[in-house]
C-alpha cells in the first residue's frame, strides 16, 4: 500500500468495507444456495458437491477435509462482522431516532425508504440467526450431506431456523446489491434503476423459491424420527 492507514479516512474505509463485504457476502450466499440446491438433482449430486467443497480431490482417501467448511464458516462470520459494524452505525439506535423515522415514514410515502426498512429488519434477523447457522455447520462440518443435512433440517427442527433465515437473507441480499449499485453510481440513468429494481425483486423471488424447494427436497433424506 502506498499510504499508511490514515485515521482521518476512517469513514471512507468503513463505507468501502460495508459495500465490499456486502457484495462478497451476496455472491457467497447465492453460490452457496446454488450448491445446496444440488439436492434437487438428487442425493448423489449433493453428496458430490459436499465432498468437493471439502476438497476431497486433494485427499488421498477421497474423504476430503471437513475443517475447510469450518474455515469458510469462520470467514463468512468475519465478513459478516465487517459488514454489520458500519451498517449498525447507521441504524436508528436511540429512541429519538426511532421516533423521527416513524414520523417520517408515516407522513411521507416512499418506496425505497420502505425497502431500506425491510433491509434493516432482515439485517437484524440475520444478525440473530446467522451465528446459529454458522455454529451448526462450522462445528459439525462432517455431517453435511443429503442424510446429515436432511436429519438436521427436518428431524432436529433446523427448518425453524432456515426458513426465516432464507427469507431474510434473500430479501436482504438482493435489496443490498440493488442499493450498492446505485450507491456507487453504476446505474447512470433513471431507467436503469427501474429495471434494476425489477431484477432485484426477481432475484429475491427466484432464490427464495430455490431455497424452499431445496429445503423440501431434503425431506425424503431425513431419517424418520422416532
Amino acid at each position: 500500500m502506498a499510504k499508511r492507514l490514515n485515521l482521518t479516512k476512517w469513514y471512507a474505509y468503513l463505507d468501502v468495507c460495508q459495500s465490499l463485504s456486502g457484495v462478497l457476502l451476496a455472491v457467497f450466499l447465492w453460490t452457496h444456495l446454488l450448491l445446496v440446491s444440488s439436492i434437487l438433482l438428487g442425493g448423489e449430486a449433493m453428496a458430490w458437491v459436499a465432498r468437493t467443497m471439502e476438497l476431497s480431490f486433494l485427499s488421498a482417501d477421497g474423504q476430503g477435509y471437513p475443517w475447510v467448511v469450518s474455515l469458510i464458516a469462520i470467514g463468512v462470520a468475519g465478513l459478516a462482522l465487517v459488514h454489520a459494524v458500519p451498517a449498525l452505525q447507521k441504524m436508528p439506535l436511540t429512541l429519538r431516532q426511532h421516533a423521527a423515522l416513524r414520523t417520517q415514514m408515516h407522513s411521507i410515502d416512499h418506496g425505497d425508504t420502505r425497502l431500506w426498512y425491510w433491509q434493516a429488519l432482515t439485517g437484524g434477523v440475520i444478525l440473530l440467526l446467522l451465528p446459529v447457522h454458522l455454529w451448526l455447520i462450522g462445528s459439525a462440518p462432517e455431517t453435511i450431506g443429503p442424510q446429515g443435512s436432511g436429519h438436521r433440517i427436518w428431524a432436529q427442527g433446523a427448518w425453524l431456523l432456515y426458513l426465516p433465515l432464507l427469507l431474510a437473507v434473500e430479501l436482504h441480499a438482493a435489496i443490498g446489491i440493488y442499493r450498492v449499485v446505485l450507491k456507487w453510481g453504476a446505474a447512470r440513468g433513471l431507467d436503469t434503476r427501474i429495471w434494476l429494481k425489477k431484477l432485484k425483486t426477481l432475484v429475491s423471488l427466484l432464490f427464495i423459491a430455490i431455497g424452499l424447494a431445496s429445503l423440501l427436497a431434503f425431506l425424503p433424506y431425513a431419517p424418520l424420527a422416532g
Binding site: 469513514y11 416512499h110 418506496g111 425505497d112 425508504t113 446505485l182 433513471l190
Partner: peptide
C-alpha cells in the same frame, strides 16, 4: 463531507431523487 454526516452517511434511500 468525508464522514458520517457527509457523503458516507448517505444510505442511498433516494427520497431526494424521487421527490
Amino acid at each position: 463531507i468525508g464522514n458520517q454526516d457527509g457523503v458516507f452517511g448517505c444510505m442511498t434511500l433516494l427520497g431526494c431523487q424521487d421527490n
